[in-house]
Amino acid sequence: MLAIHNLEVVYNQVVRVLGGVSLRVDAGETVALLGPNGAGKTTLLRALTGLLPIHNGVITKGRLLLEETELARKAPERIVRAGLVQVMEGRRIFTDLSVEDNLRAGAHTRRDGEVRRDLDNYFTLFPRLAERRRQQAGFLSGGEQQMLAIARALMAKPRMLLLDEPSLGLSPLLVAEVGKLIRVIQQQGIAILLVEQNAALALSLAARGYVLEGGKVVIDGPAQTLREDPDVQEFYLGGAGQRRDFRQAKHYRRKRRWLS
């Protein structure tokens, strides 16, 4: 489904953040992408979805194939149309739009007449969103906002979904909810690349995983193998709690304006 060959990304013409990353996700498969803060996980997703230019980043090398479509340097709009959608880190819902308008915005690239029906489906799936469909999305709780962000991306009818730290800043109870939602998505046959700091969650959902450090893949393999790897256990399956709190404070609501 998705194949990344030897991807290199440079920011501001000087900072190389990814140095030859290769990665593969098969059709309908869920793959975990783990790694510490600053490893380049978000950068990899930006390269896939055409969001690098607005961060002054460029792909200097490598190929990105979604089936037979080359994604590198394409406009975000074309990539979404090709079937690949990203849920950005920090949810990034449209806070002053209604819940329903958030979902409709997700369907922007669609031309079919089924948007209405899909909307109703999501409201059945998330009764709490349905109750608040006409309210401003900013009034939703953190967990509800994450559900909304994922549902909004699904409104584009993707073949593959990129999730950037969906459990970030959520209580354990809500993390479990997100896990449940990801399983529902898997059942629909949508492939997922799941970026997480919460390795326990990611490896319980994924078939395979990659660990990215300093812009390079350092370990990869089946989820089971990664769970048993001593390094992964030491660095990613223990003591992640504190780091997550710190990251949350730093990253949350980091909005960028680029076209103004």
Binding site: T49, L51, V80, R81, V85, R92, F94, H108, R256
Partner: peptide, 8 residues
């Protein structure tokens, strides 16, 4: 803006 772009 970025969120909108990400949705196509």
């Amino acid at each position: 803006q970025e969120s909108a772009l990400a949705l196509g």
